[in-house]
Simulated assay, not measured.
Amino acid sequence: MAEKDLADRTALVTGSTSGIGEATAKQLAGHGAHVIVAGRRQELGDGVVAAIRAAGGKADYVRAELGDAASARELARRALAISGGQVDILVNNAGTAVFGPTAETLEEGWDTTFNTNLKGHFFLVGELAPKMAARGKGVIVNTSTMVGQFAAPGMAVYGATKAALNLLTKSWAAEFGPAGVRVNAVSPGTTRTQKVVGIMGDGLDELGKQAPLGYVADADEIANAIVFLTTDKASYITGAILNVDGGRTAV
């Protein structure tokens, strides 16, 4: 049973209706946090909330597109209303991707990927981090990716958004750290989620073998690292990009 070390905190997790976000939301609830599940698909969000409540946790769902400043501000407004005016933990996990050669990349795919992976996060932090700073504490964790740190053919747009998110992580750590707000990122390697399996198919296991540990992570292994960074056990960690990739970026 998880230690209830987040019992007095509210956590907003974007993109938490499936995959890494869902695993993170459930783990945070297991640590006692009131979790606000945010995502686009109502039926999936309701399912995550129901599972958390059935396990004795506290959760609510907010539908959010999170592709522009307006949607980010609306999500912040609704999360603050649900939580009684205080979000202690923000996990920026919502994300999308466009893959393929540069010459075949459409502007629509570029815009959607950059808006979802960067713009939404940027303006959500702009709404919530100052409120954390005013209280003198708060935690933000961004979900990045290993291909934000090294080149991979066909992943230029996706990798560029995550490389930018890594720099934003450090920038926000510098900006809000003096007021007691910690900002870090987790950089997952190959992870078995429904979405990734749908894209990679049988190639997923082969990709996992490229890491020194030689296998594909499950979502809970990534969520373990995210949740750790939200707890007081990580109290002196900020501005870090924590690689959770089976050693892939080490070789």
Score class of each variant (00 low, 15 high):
L118R: 03
V196K: 02
A151Q: 11
P130K: 01
E108Y: 07
L118V: 15
L213V: 09
V91A: 05
A225Q: 11
V197R: 12
N115G: 12
Y215Q: 05
G189F: 06
G136T: 06
L229K: 02
M146E: 11
G148W: 01
Q194Y: 00
G109Y: 07
A129S: 03
N142Y: 06
S187A: 14
V157D: 10
L124N: 01
V157S: 09
G109P: 13
W172H: 04
T102L: 15
V91R: 03
V196H: 05
W110T: 14
D218G: 10
G120H: 00
E221G: 04
D205L: 00
I89V: 15
K195E: 12
A103F: 12
T161M: 06
D220R: 14
K209M: 12
K209P: 08
D88C: 13
L213C: 00
V91S: 07
T145R: 01
A134V: 03
T191E: 02
A103G: 03
G203K: 12
D202K: 11
V139Y: 06
V91G: 08
Q149P: 00
L167D: 08
F150V: 09
T193Q: 07
K119L: 05
Q86F: 01
W172F: 13
N166S: 13
V98Q: 14
T193A: 05
E104V: 09
A151V: 13
A219V: 04
R135C: 05
G159P: 10
D218H: 08
L124F: 03
E206S: 11
A211G: 11
G148T: 04
A94D: 02
N224C: 01
M132D: 03
V98L: 12
N117M: 12
G203D: 13
F176V: 02
G100K: 04
K170D: 02
A129I: 05
L118I: 15
A152Q: 13
S144A: 11
N93D: 14
F123Q: 01
A152T: 09
A156N: 14
I199H: 10
F123T: 01
G203A: 12
V141A: 05
G214H: 08
T145G: 04
A225N: 09
T116I: 11
K209T: 10
L168R: 00
A173H: 06
L90T: 03
A211Q: 07
M132K: 03
V87T: 07
T193E: 08
T102G: 05
W172L: 03
D111G: 01
Q194G: 14
A151G: 14
D88G: 11
K119P: 00
M132P: 02
V147Y: 08
M155D: 13
F176E: 01
V227K: 10
E107H: 15
A174C: 07
K137F: 10
A185D: 13
G126R: 09
L106Q: 14
T116L: 06
F150C: 05
R182V: 09
I226C: 09
A133S: 12
P101L: 12
Q194R: 13
A133K: 05
L167A: 11
K131N: 00
N115Y: 05
